[in-house]
Design a protein around this nucleic acid. Structure first.
Length: 489
RNA sequence: GCCGGCGUAGUUAAACGGUAUAACAAAGGACUCAUAAGCCUUGAUCGGAAGUUCGACUCUUCCCGCCGGCACCA
């Protein structure tokens, strides 16, 4: 039996660059799942936000010669702007620099500390004065820092706080033994391997002497929280934890707050990139175990968007795609369509404008758009009003796909219906029948309209605006004034 | 090096121990309600080699190529 409350989050990106297409994918996937769950009648809370603390941010602000707060405000604004660009339906946007979040992160720290899972330990590592940070083997070139070969790396010792992740090895393995813990299923092995192959405690603080842009640690002025530790807590602070009364929502019926309703009693889903497995499915789950909170039910990992031929997108190659530019030219729903259907839900997929245009012309202009014109032109001309639409006509197969997070398959299914409806018109020829047998012709047209409405319903999570427009046109029995999707040449 | 994934028509993908399933692109055809759209027809011997089997794209081994993980950069 499914829980009625459904909670879904994305990861929160670092605000040191413009939003890229990969994060747009994550947002749109989460949004589609949130809309789907609402469609089937569940109570949904969908959260996203930005991670604004940490060394990279600090360095970024110095580079742009900006005050760090105005630097993060500037970039956070861009991420907030995606709400309109991508037509997102999130319920809250949490910034890690917000007062509520800082408070929550500190409270979480206290709970872990009270449990005895936080301790101080000396950390020894190679420190590069040029980089002003610890460097690892990978950064070394012939024993010297690759960025500062003139400066000799020093062995430096620093005392940090550590989290006793290793205490939770067994519990984590039990957690990861559940098939539902990770989607796609085969990524679970990666997490299990990580836990069983000598997973160690991890450091959760940084010395303020080096940088201070982080959440202050309760009871220790000399250190700030390491970004990971604090950032994870956004999944709780966005629900108003630890306060039971969140400004977003007055206490719910029965005195239950958002945190209780969604984190304690709801189904909890996180969406993240495939590089996050050990962070989200291991460290974060270990932290939840420490404070005795329920773990995340399922974490769904998507692949990366690449350039032509599976090559990583990068500025130097100039093969990057700006989601905002795509939306400007093709519209929000076209981008959502492409991300949710043509990009694999789980694996890496290439995104090029050429590919995008082909998919747009074939499936949106020639496919959906043309079908809508076809049917509504006939119905406007020959029917007095919209035929009666049956209440429940969402196919179970479509729901099954979405329940497994196989968004592309759900969209494939929808497009198969579109193609079959095209064939139905081709074969039954209502446009001819209507001239010789009015009753039969009207029946055929009505049946096409009803089938189109069913398709419109399935568009709800994928292309929300198109879904609304289409339902409206069908109800009003009007053909569109302008093509839904103009062909691009 | 170790662990895992991948390599199928021009492209993106699917399937299965018994002679390969689609979509897009391309070419040709009959039609016309529609956005010169839609419909029909046409192509791959499955990265390479060997083996198991009556039979392998599907199982095993080796090789080649690509990708991810092997933690504190997020």
């Amino acid at each position: 039996m499914k829980k009625n409350s459904f909670y879904i989050t994305t990861t929160i990106p670092y605000v040191n660059a413009d939003p890229h297409i990969g994060f747009a994918l994550e947002l749109v996937q989460a949004d589609a799942m949130a809309r789907y769950q609402r469609l089937v009648g569940r109570d949904v809370f969908f959260s996203t936000g930005t991670d604004e603390y940490g060394q990279k941010i600090w360095e970024g602000s110095l580079k742009e010669d900006k005050d760090v707060q105005s630097y993060v405000d500037f970039y956070a604004e861009k991420f907030l702007g995606l709400k309109d660009v991508l037509n997102l339906s999130y319920d809250n946007f949490i910034r890690t620099t917000s007062g509520e979040h800082v408070k929550a992160a500190q409270e979480f720290w206290r709970l872990c500390d009270a449990k005895g899972d936080i301790y101080k330990k000396k950390y020894r590592g190679l420190y590069c004065v040029g980089c002003e940070k610890f460097i690892t083997e990978k950064d070394l070139m012939e024993g010297k820092c690759s960025l500062h070969p003139d400066k000799k790396p020093e062995m430096v010792e620093e005392e940090n706080y550590f989290f006793r992740l290793a205490n939770y090895r067994k519990q984590l393995l039990d957690y990861l033994a559940k098939e539902k813990a990770i989607f796609p299923e085969w990524r679970r092995r990666e997490a299990i391997d990580f836990v069983s192959e000598g997973m160690e405690d991890f450091s959760i603080s940084r010395d303020k002497k080096r940088f201070s842009w982080g959440v202050p640690i309760p009871g220790d002025d000399a250190q700030v929280m390491y970004v990971w530790f604090g950032a994870f807590v956004n999944y709780l602070s966005t629900l108003g934890w630890p306060d039971s009364h969140h400004p977003l929502s007055p206490p719910l019926a029965g005195g239950e707050g958002l945190f209780e309703k969604f984190w304690v009693n709801g189904e909890k889903i996180q969406i993240a990139g495939k590089d996050m497995v050990k962070f989200q499915s291991v460290m974060w789950q270990g932290m939840l175990m420490s404070v005795g909170m329920p773990t995340t039910d399922t974490i769904v990992y998507h692949g990366f968007i690449t350039g032509e031929g599976g090559i990583k997108m990068s500025k130097s190659l100039g093969n990057g795609i700006d989601p905002i530019e795509v939306v400007k030219e093709y519209g929000t729903d076209a981008l959502r369509y492409f991300l949710l259907r043509e990009i694999s839900s789980f694996e890496d997929s290439p995104f090029t404008m050429e590919r995008f245009k082909e998919a747009y012309n074939a499936n949106l202009a020639n496919g959906l758009g043309n079908l809508v014109s076809r049917i509504l032109t006939l119905s406007e001309k020959y029917l007095n009003k919209c035929p009666e639409i049956p209440e429940h006509s969402i196919p179970q197969e479509w729901k099954d796909y979405l329940d497994k997070f196989e968004i592309n398959k759900a969209v494939d299914f929808t497009w198969k219906e579109i193609s079959e409806l095209d064939k139905f018109i081709q074969e039954t020829e209502p446009f001819k029948v209507i001239k010789v047998d009015e009753k039969k012709g009207k029946e055929l047209i009505s049946s096409a309209v009803i089938r189109l409405y069913k398709i419109a319903r399935m568009l709800n999570p994928i292309m929300p605006s198109t879904n609304e427009l289409l339902k409206k046109l069908i109800k009003e029995n009007k053909k569109p004034d302008q093509p839904l999707f103009l062909r691009k040449d």
